[in-house]
Structure formats: structure tokens, C-alpha cells
Design a protein around this nucleic acid. Structure first.
Lengths: 127, 127
DNA sequence: TTATTAATGCAACCCGGTTGCAAAAATACG
DNA sequence: CGTATTTTTGCAACCGGGTTGCATTAATAA
């Protein structure tokens, strides 16, 4: 009854996520699987993996979509994980930061989720 | 020597921002000025206004671009204002929150800027 | 093994945003 | 004020990330 089928491409994508701790942009993924998978297929597999709670997505610098492997505390129904994402403006890599961000309490508004995107320099690129 | 010219459209856009305290999506602006201004022109004026430090932009829910009037503490060279943005998931309105977000210190990374986007319900939409 | 259902490829499409260029509007200047 | 200069604008075409409908193919169920 597994509603998501383990096709070759699904396996390939999952394996790719295992091998890359950093986040991956959809554009890169489409490029990487060019010839092996159709663009639409990549998009649809990512959707499914996100529905399954295996990966999560967020938007980066130019409104581009990024995906990263979910950590253990990222369950199926509890998306939009409450951790910030970081991009190094030098080398361009994007990663999940394993710290909790505190969601501000705002008067007269009920906050239900929050996204934080940090831009800076990673250790390697700090000269 | 004002490097930005005060054309009718620039005035119109500025006035529009005066009248709307909430943030405005570019899509809405283009729609609103349809017939009076070309799409490209709207984009270009917004760019210029941002360069002048009169408005600032950020990305909302679907990677769409939003603009809002800069507050007094938002100077020309100090962009990407350190305040969070909020969108009501019920009525869709987007606004700047006049609270400071504390940028987390992250080990082995130099953080240079941060963006926070909050999703929830505004007072009117909280039943 | 076959029937069923989900996944894939393809091609066309959608839409937010950008660009090159000629025409029009602002500003500078004599 | 009138002209030269520079910035803006409109237009039309384009770019690219992302989506969709549909027929074909691959997984799973039975």
C-alpha cells in the first residue's frame, strides 16, 4: 500500500540526497539528471518525497527552490521545519543549520510558521 | 543632479506606496498600473526606488517579489532591512513588522544578512 | 501472469521577470 | 526660452523556472 513507488529514479534521487549533505537546488538536480530523467519527473519526484517527509523545500536567493534531506525530527505532517537555511555568498553552497530559530511573538497576529534565510560566508570562504 | 527623474509614473508609484502601508507585490503593481505603465517600466521604477532607498523588496510565499515603503531607519546603503515580513494566510496581506529579529550566531560562518518570513493570521482573520 | 494503478516522457504551456532598441520625456545649459 | 543631453518609457521579444495533459511504460496487487 506504499503510495509512493520505488522506481529507479526515486532511488537515484534519494541516493543523491544521501551523498550530499548540503541542500540542492532543483535547477541543479534537473541538470544533474539530464538524460536520465525528464525535468517534470524530477519536479514530481521531489514533490512526492516532500509529501512523504523525506525532504523539505525552501526558497533561496532568487526565488529558486532548494531541497534538502529531512533530519529525524522532520515528520510527514510537520513540514516547513523550524531551522534556518544558510547560503554562502562566495561559493554559493546552501545548507540547513541545525539550530532552532525562535519565532517572535507578534502582537495581534497568530504566527503559524516561520522561515529564515541567512546569507554570509562559510568557513572555507572566510579569508 | 538628482539621478532619478521625477516622472509622472515615478510620482504615481510613490504616491501609491504612501497610500498603502502594507507591502505590495510586483504582480499587483503591474496589474494596478496596467494601461498607464508598461510592465517593464514598473519593474524598472521599483528598481530605482530601491536604489534610492525609498522602498525595499523581499520574496514572499511563491518566490514572488514584494515591495514596501522603507521606514526612516532604512537608508540607501543599508538595505535588506533587518525586520521580518508577515503574510496572513487567510486574507493574503503582507506587511513589514517593526520588530528586530536577532540574527543567530552560527559557528564557523560569518552571517552578513538575514531574512525572515512569518506566516500566520492577522487580527481580522483570527476568528 | 495478468489487471490495476502509479510514474514517466514529451511537448506545449504559464507567468514572473529581463533585455535591446527606438521614441518620448526630463533635465541641463547657453 | 530653445536646444542639446541624458534618462525613461513602451514595445516586443525573450528567458527560465515551474506546471500540465495525455499517452506510454513500469511497479505493485491479485
Amino acid at each position: 500500500m506504499g503510495i509512493i513507488r520505488k522506481t529507479k529514479l526515486v532511488e537515484a534521487l534519494l541516493q543523491h540526497f544521501e551523498q550530499h549533505t548540503n541542500a540542492l537546488s532543483v535547477v541543479n538536480l534537473v541538470e544533474h539528471f539530464k538524460g536520465k530523467a525528464n525535468k517534470s519527473t524530477v519536479y514530481r519526484i521531489l514533490d512526492r518525497l516532500q509529501d512523504e517527509g523525506l525532504v523539505h523545500s525552501f526558497r533561496g536567493q532568487n526565488g529558486l527552490t532548494w531541497y534538502a534531506k529531512c533530519s529525524t525530527d522532520c515528520s510527514t505532517n510537520h513540514h516547513r521545519d523550524i531551522h534556518p537555511h544558510f547560503q554562502c555568498q562566495q561559493c554559493g553552497k546552501v545548507e540547513c543549520l541545525s539550530i532552532k530559530i525562535d519565532i517572535p511573538h507578534v502582537e495581534a497576529r497568530r504566527i503559524e510558521s516561520a522561515e529564515m534565510f541567512l546569507i554570509g560566508r562559510c568557513e572555507e570562504c572566510t579569508s
